[in-house]
């Protein structure tokens, strides 16, 4: 209903106005798409963290592990406290939590991101519809102009 109304509004606008609307909509669509991909990467990183926690909780204490210092340098170490983890919650703050709490944190974050993702996806698809509509009308108007002149 809303898009139908905006479509009627667009048809009454001049070519320049439709063009401006289209450009604006395209810009917003791109921005939303960027945000979506950012959320996707964040979710995947949290999923990796969650699976790492799962992995870690399965190992008994004093297990020999290799810790990556850089991408290609690993040093041997032993696992001391597999029941506690430090979580980076942002802005430089770290919180010590137990293993189940840590897992819970990851799950909560993932769920939050997923709900944000769904909301954003809805908005993005709506915006994309508006942009497409503007593009179609712009094309029609340009064709009309070309045939009349």
């Amino acid at each position: 209903m809303a898009s139908w109304k905006s479509g009627m509004g667009l048809e009454r606008m001049s070519v320049e106005q439709v063009k401006a609307v289209k450009e604006q909509a395209d810009l917003e669509v791109n921005l939303l798409q960027d945000s979506l991909s950012n959320i996707r990467t964040a979710t995947s990183r949290l999923e990796i963290a969650s699976s790492a926690l799962n992995d870690l909780s399965l190992r008994p204490p004093a297990t020999r592990i290799l810790v990556p210092l850089t991408a290609s340098l690993y040093v041997p170490a032993t696992l001391h406290h597999p029941h506690h983890v430090l979580l980076d919650v942002g802005t430089g703050y770290f919180i010590q939590k137990t293993m189940p709490e840590g897992k819970d944190y990851c799950h909560r974050k993932i769920n939050l991101l997923k709900s944000n993702f769904d909301q954003l996806l809805e908005i993005a698809s709506k915006k994309k519809n508006v942009a497409d509509e503007a593009g179609v009308i712009l094309q029609a108007k340009l064709n009309q102009l070309a045939s009349s002149s």
Binding site: L86, V89, G90, T91, G92, Y93, F94, I95, Q96, K97, Y105
Partner: peptide
């Protein structure tokens, strides 16, 4: 963006028990 991040941190801090250990990253030191 900073406001959102800080609000997330605050929410997380509010969830903690009183005896929880909180660390702050200052330079390379916790």
């Amino acid at each position: 963006v900073q406001l959102g991040e800080n609000e997330l941190v605050l929410k997380e801090l509010d969830l903690l028990k009183d005896d929880a250990n909180v660390y702050k990253l200052i330079g390379p030191v916790l």
